[in-house]
C-alpha cells in the first residue's frame, strides 16, 4: 500500500485492525486496482469535505447568537466571486474524477481480458486464460472446467498468476459471483451469459459468495476459492478427476432442486454440452424449447421494430 493511501486510511485502519479487511488488502490484481481507485476517489473527495467540515464548525461557533463581536450582515446574500468558487470547485473535482471514472470503467471492465498480472507485469504472450463456467443454482454454485473436464459444487480453485475467465449464468434466480479478494462481482443471470476476468496473485484460501439476494438459502451460498501454485492446481485437478462421478443432464437436474448449505461435490467428468444447455435453459428439454432455437425462430419472424437480440445468449 502506498504511503499516502495509508494516511488517508489511518482512522479506518484503527477500526479495521480486528477485522479481516479483504477488500482493502486483496490478493488479486483486479481487486488491488479497484481498491486503489476507491482510495484515490476518497482522497479527492476529502479535498472538499474536510475544509467544509472545518468551516461549518468554525462558522457555527464564531457566528453563534451570543457572540456579539462577530460581524452580522443580515442582507448579505450574494457575491459573484464566491458563487464562482461555489460552482467551480465541485465542477473541477467531478471533472477530474470523471476522467478516472471513464478510464477505469474500461480498464477494469469485467468483460475485458486480463492484460497484466500486477503493476509493470504484463501477461506473458501466448498465455491462455483458465476458463471456468459458473452456474448459480438455488442455492449453490456449480463450477465447470471445460478444458480440464471436471466440475465442482461450492468449491473452486485456480492457479496463481494465470488469467481466469469466468463465464456466468444462472438456473432460476439471479445471483452475483463475488470473491472479494481477487476481483469485483458480476451477476449470474438466467437466460444470459456474463463474463468476469480476474487473476489471483497469492496462494491462499479466499471466501466467495453470492452478493445478490436470491431467496431462502442465499446467506449460506458461500464457498472457498483456493489460490494454488500451478503445480498444486494440477494436483487438485487430478484429485477431482479421481473423485469420479459424472456431471450430466441427470445430475444437473438433481442440482436444480432447491437446497440450503449444499456440501462440496466433485465430478471427475462433465458432459461438454451441459453448460451451453444451462445457458439455453433447456437441460433435459427437447431442442425446440431451447432459448437459442426460440430466439432464432423469433429472428426469422422478426418485425421492423425490434429484432430479438440473438447474440445475447451466445
Amino acid at each position: 500500500m502506498k504511503l499516502h493511501h495509508f494516511y488517508a486510511l489511518l482512522p479506518l485502519a484503527a477500526i479495521l485492525a480486528g477485522c479481516n479487511a479483504v477488500e482493502l488488502n486483496p490478493s488479486g490484481d483486479v481487486a488491488v486496482q479497484e481498491r486503489d481507485l476507491i482510495l484515490y476517489a476518497t482522497e479527492l473527495m476529502l479535498i472538499v469535505i474536510l475544509p467544509v467540515a472545518f468551516l461549518t464548525t468554525l462558522f457555527a461557533w464564531h457566528y453563534r447568537h451570543d457572540n456579539k463581536s462577530a460581524r452580522y450582515e443580515p442582507e448579505w446574500h450574494h457575491s459573484t466571486p464566491l458563487e464562482v468558487v461555489v460552482w467551480g470547485i465541485p465542477i473541477i473535482i467531478i471533472a477530474v474524477m470523471s476522467v478516472t471514472t471513464w478510464k477505469t470503467a474500461h480498464t477494469l471492465d469485467p468483460y475485458a481480458p486480463i492484460t497484466r498480472l500486477g503493476p509493470d507485469q504484463p501477461v506473458p504472450p501466448g498465455t491462455k486464460p483458465l476458463v471456468i463456467q459458473v452456474v448459480a443454482l438455488d442455492w449453490k454454485w456449480l463450477f465447470i472446467y471445460p478444458e480440464q473436464g471436471i466440475a465442482t459444487v461450492n468449491e473452486v480453485a485456480a492457479p496463481i498468476n494465470q488469467p481466469i475467465e469466468f463465464r456466468l449464468t444462472a438456473d432460476r434466480t439471479q445471483n452475483s459471483l463475488n470473491i472479494p479478494a481477487i476481483a469485483g462481482q458480476v451477476y449470474a443471470m438466467p437466460t444470459m451469459e456474463t463474463e468476469l476476468h480476474a487473476v489471483v496473485n497469492k496462494v491462499g484460501e479466499y471466501r466467495g459468495k453470492s452478493s445478490r439476494f436470491s431467496g431462502t438459502g442465499f446467506s449460506e451460498m458461500h464457498f472457498w476459492f483456493h489460490g494454488l501454485s500451478t503445480e498444486d492446481f494440477g494436483k487438485w485437478v487430478a484429485q477431482v478427476k479421481t473423485a469420479g462421478g459424472t456431471l450430466d443432464t441427470a445430475t444437473y437436474q438433481q442440482l436444480q432442486v432447491q437446497s440450503v448449505s449444499e456440501p462440496v461435490h466433485r465430478y471427475g467428468s462433465v458432459d461438454p454440452q451441459l453448460y451451453k444447455l444451462a445457458v439455453d435453459q433447456c437441460v433435459g428439454k427437447p431442442g425446440n424449447l431451447c432459448l437459442s432455437t426460440i430466439r432464432a425462430n423469433d429472428f426469422k419472424k422478426g418485425n421492423g421494430l425490434c429484432r430479438p437480440n440473438v447474440s445475447a445468449s451466445n
Binding site: N288, I294, N297, D298, K301, G302, N303, L305, C306, P308
Partner: peptide, 17 residues
C-alpha cells in the same frame, strides 16, 4: 416494453404469421 419484448414470440404467433 413493447419495443423491448415485442419481438419475443416464444414459438407462438407473430404479426405476419
Amino acid at each position: 416494453i413493447f419495443a423491448w419484448l415485442g419481438g419475443h414470440y416464444a414459438n407462438g404467433p407473430a404479426p405476419l404469421d
